[in-house]
Each structure stands twice: as structure tokens, then as C-alpha cells.
Write a protein that binds this DNA or RNA. Sequence first.
DNA 1: TGCGTTTCTTAGGGAAATCACAGATTCGTG
DNA 2: CACGAATCTGTGATTTCCCTAAGAAACGCA
Lengths: 250, 250
Amino acid sequence: MVSTMTTTSPQGRTELLRPDGSPVRVLVVDDELSITELLSMALRYEGWQIRSAGDGQGAIQTAREFRPDAVVLDMMLPDMDGLTVLGRLRRELPDVPVLFLTAKDAVEDRIAGLTAGGDDYVTKPFSLEEVVARLRGLIRRSGAADRRSDSVLVVGDLTLDEDSHEVSRAGDSIHLTATEFELLRFLMRNPRRVLSKAQILDRVWSYDFGGQANVVELYISYLRRKIDAGREPMIHTRRGAGYLIKPAAS
Amino acid sequence: MVSTMTTTSPQGRTELLRPDGSPVRVLVVDDELSITELLSMALRYEGWQIRSAGDGQGAIQTAREFRPDAVVLDMMLPDMDGLTVLGRLRRELPDVPVLFLTAKDAVEDRIAGLTAGGDDYVTKPFSLEEVVARLRGLIRRSGAADRRSDSVLVVGDLTLDEDSHEVSRAGDSIHLTATEFELLRFLMRNPRRVLSKAQILDRVWSYDFGGQANVVELYISYLRRKIDAGREPMIHTRRGAGYLIKPAAS
DNA sequence: TGCGTTTCTTAGGGAAATCACAGATTCGTG
DNA sequence: CACGAATCTGTGATTTCCCTAAGAAACGCA
């Protein structure tokens, strides 16, 4: 059990740190190299320390000496069953939270049983924002239980609760679809920073998305309708550069 | 991962340095000699130490012994796929940030995930200011522990934020177009220094620009209207030599 | 299965940005 | 003070980028 704290960097990004100030450690286990690479890159960017393994054997070994604060674990590994890996992991690190990666059509109930203990899962293909968000949640909850307030992002009079998925502006509750929510979360996690359409696509849409880049424009337009409608706008276009969100005041 | 710091040279130029005071090292990889030459010159002018390679093989080798702080990597190399090069680079230097060069029309066919890990890309034909700016950003952010060097340029009462793309003079927010922003950034990165129209054209406009040289005059005029309008001018003409920016006070 | 919701594509309109051109203005010099 | 060169800027054509309506397809849930 590791308690965590958050600090806010000069850029305004919120970072998760261990109590002694050292970076959070995450172990990524997947047999597809492209997946471990993608996850490693993205999680490293969060400021976390990453190790990866390609099979169950390697996972156990790495876990033993790396002692991660969280594990991302693909349920389909070449050498052993996901449950076996999980069991051995638990023997090494009884309290480490695990984020399972499963195929979309995987048996839901089996996973449901596993996540009862406070673990979590995402289905492939996932979006990086989703993985990062769930990992943050797991790590946060595995430490100080009273860190509830950390799950709320605030920009101006706009708030977004990562736990309850509730969004409201100036007190008015706003209903968002899953994609709208992820997009807004990404924007709000990077307030006052211009985010390019490519960046948004890479983080908010799943890694196998092969469609038109203008979905981003489309969803920005949806968000505006729900968040900025009739109010002073918070979402701004920087023509030729991207989008950013900032408090209406300034 | 290398933490960086900034110092301000006697001339007023802001330079990026490694913590031990040694120059930043950048590896440039492109098969077109004209491009590597162009980039090498421009980046050397930043005070950085540059090595270049013409193919993937050479890139890996050079990276191994040169150990750069950042890499500029063309996605179209003769001997191997850009992603393959990236993978091997990552094995050598897990945390090095990469700036990808891609053809304009190749943007659509998946640069997926490239910006997700904090990496970035520019499309050919690019402007040197753009490449330099993005490299500076990457290097600045890759020094995760030390984010003290911030993204705001200041000259007199004029400020320019490279993250939010916000510009303001004496507190008044000023909206600039993309080209105006790049031009002002170039001026502000070289305060009190005369920059010739040719220099400006070479740095701010893309290398294949074939138009009239007086676009520079035109955009200087735009900038003045927005920045100096009704105030003590900060942008000055040195007839026959070029332009310079300096605090209004002196 | 059927219905409402969500996601995404296509395509057209429209606004903004870029740039060429040319006439107006300023500057330096004789 | 007059002249030529250099610089400035108004006008408008062209291009690029962004927004959004409309509808098809996929999804989720009863």
C-alpha cells in the first residue's frame, strides 16, 4: 500500500507522486511489442517510471525487483493464463492494484469477478486517456482513501468528476457522451495549453482509429454546444494550431 | 532523460543548456542532404551540438555513441521504416524525445500515437523557427524533474507564451495569426538584434517559399498594428539592414 | 428484436489567413 | 529641398482551415 500525493507543475499539469516525492512506478505486461511501446511512451509522459514485460514469467520476475505501484496486465499472454499470472503477482505484491487489458469480446463475468477487489480493466482497443485515467484512479485509491477531492478537475466554473463522471458548469449539470467526456477531460487536464488535433486524436481516440481527423472538430463542436452554449466560451480555436480550454474570466 | 536549464546570454538570446552547462545534443536524420544541411546549420545557430545521419542504420549507430538529447527523424528513410527506426532508437535511448518530419499529404495515413508519448511532428515543407520551437519544447519537457525553464518570452511589457500561444502587451491580450505569431517569436527570441529580411524569410517562412520578399514588410506592418498601435513602438526599422525589437523604455 | 443513442463520414458553406500587386509614404543623401 | 531607394500599407484574389448539418452505421439496452 502506497499513499500518494499530487503536485501541480508550473505548466498547470497535475502530477501523481509517491509520498517521498519519487515517481510512481508502473509495470506494463503485454506480448505485443507495439502495445507495450505505446503504453510505455504515454505513461512515461505522465512522469511515471515504467518497466515492461512480454510474458507472465517476465512479469513476475520484473515485479519482484521493480516493486511497481501498479500493474497493467494483458489477460492473453503466450506462456501462462492471466489468472495464474495474477495469482503469482499477488503473492509478490499483495496490495498492488492491477489494470487488466482484455479483448472486447472477452468473457465479461470473469473480469467482473476480478475487479471486485478494487482492480479495474479496459478493453482493447483502448484510448490512452482512458488507461491513464484508470491507472490514476487505481493508484490514488490504493493509497490514501481520503483523496476523493483529487478526482475533480476544475477550470473556471467548469468541473468534471473523474469518479462519478459528473460534469457541471456554473452549477448546471451537463450530460456528456463517453467520447465527449474523454475529450473534455483531456482538455481540462491541460488547461491553457494549445493541443493539436493530432495530439487529441492520439490521446482521446483508440490507437487503432483510422478515420478522418475532423472527428475532433466535430466533437469540439458538440462540446461547445453543451458547455459554452449561451455562455462566455471556454473552448477556443487557435487556427492552424489546435484548441485550448481556459477559464472564461480571462 | 536530461534535465535542462536556460541561461540568458549577454546578447539577450535565451539558450537551452544541459544541467552541467554543456550544450544540448541533437541528432538529425534525413536522407536528403539539403535538409540535414539546412537543419544542422539552423540548430547549430541555437548553440546546440549536431550530428546527422542519412539512413536508419546510421541513425541507430550515431545515437548509440552520440547519445543525443533529442532526435529529428524523417519518417521516409531509404533503408527502413520510420517506426522501425523509432523502435530501435527507443531501445538505445528510452526517454529521448523525437521530432518527426513527414510529408504534408502523409499526415493522414497514420502518424497514430506519435504525439501521444510527448513526441511531436512537423510537416514538410517546414519553417526553421517551427522546428526549433518544437525541439525546444520537447527538450524542455523531457527534463521531467526540472520544469523550471518556462515557456514565456518577455521583452519589456510584451509577453508571448509558447504553450498557450497567448500574447499580451501591458496586460492587454493580443490575437495573432499563426504567421504573425512565428514572426514575433523570432523577433522576441532575438531582442535588440537587427534581423535582415532575408534572415526572417529564411527562419519564419518555410524553406520552399517562392513568393515575394516583401511579405516580411507586410507582416511587420501587421504586427505593428497589433502590438505598437497607439503605444511607444517596440519594433524598429533599420533602413537597409532589417528590423529589431526592444523594450519601449530604452 | 427493435428503438433510441452514440459515433463517425461526407460535403458544403463560410470565415480567416496568406500573399501579390501597386500606389503612398518615408528616409537618406546630394 | 529634391530625388531615388527603401519601406509601408490598402485592396482584393486565392487558398486554407474550420464549422456544422444531415444521414449512415454501429452500439447498447430493454
